[in-house]
């Protein structure tokens, strides 16, 4: 047998510790992505072109370039500006910024789907622009886009192993270290793959459930 069950089980705790780091990175990365994305989305709708345009270009640029290079950029360039981040923090920020440019598109779609009349009604009640967003538009725009945002959580989870490139001890990095130390690569990488598959499938199922619930509520 090439596959060694005993070995596979013995490395499980170490790999699960890595999974913890991965999930932590995704949690904070997504927190950044959700907040920044909303900022980009509203900025792009701003009537001030000097705000809308640069943000639109930035979002396009980030979406069109590799996350890995962005991670390197943040990790290696920031120190020369006097800002040294730990690998994990640099990785989390990179994930957050990268995905904020995707969530911003989702927010935009959600906001665009709110009927014009709602803005006009809010204006008629003399809400400010900010108050219109806060009390009228976003409460309607966000529930329908929750599944789409959820998909980006799963996507970020699958991109988190890129942090191994800057030595973050996340799940893939630990598998690699185990491999380098034992010269056994089959078990660690297969275990990691299976963990990803299980978690993606489970969260996918959860999302479909959620989506159905949201549809029922809105119907």
């Amino acid at each position: 047998m090439i596959w060694d069950w005993e070995f596979a089980i013995s490395i499980l705790p170490e790999i699960l510790r890595g999974l913890g780091v991965t999930l932590l990175a995704v949690f904070w990365g997504m927190t950044i992505a959700l907040s920044l994305g909303l900022v980009w989305a509203t900025a792009r709708r701003s009537t001030n072109r000097l705000v809308a345009w640069p943000v639109a270009c930035f979002v396009e640029f980030v979406r069109s370039t590799p996350l890995l290079v962005q991670i390197f950029f943040l990790f290696y360039v920031l120190p020369s500006l006097g800002l040294t981040l730990s690998p994990l923090l640099a990785g989390v920020v990179a994930l957050g910024i990268h995905y904020s440019c995707y969530t911003s598109e989702v927010y935009r779609a959600g906001i665009n789907a709110v009927p014009r009349g709602q803005w006009e009604a809010a204006r008629a009640l003399s809400f400010s622009r900010w108050e219109s967003y806060r009390y009228v538009i976003l409460p309607q725009a966000i529930p329908p886009i929750i599944p789409a945002l959820g998909n980006y959580v799963i996507a970020m989870f699958k991109d988190a192993p890129l942090l191994s490139a800057i030595t973050v001890l996340e799940i893939l990095q630990r598998a690699k270290i185990i491999g380098n130390e034992t010269f056994r690569y089959l078990e660690p990488f297969t275990v990691v793959g299976v963990i990803f598959l299980i978690l993606s499938l489970l969260s996918g199922l959860l999302l479909t459930r959620l989506e159905r619930r949201l549809k029922l509520v809105s119907a």
Binding site: F157, K158, D159, A160, P161, L162, S164, L172, A175, K176, G179, Y185, L186, F189, T190, V192, G193, F196, L197, S200, L201, G204
Partner: peptide, 15 residues
Amino acid sequence: RGTSALVQLFWFYFA
């Protein structure tokens, strides 16, 4: 779709 692209690369290259 369910496993990460980087994990797939590692698996195909090392495992």
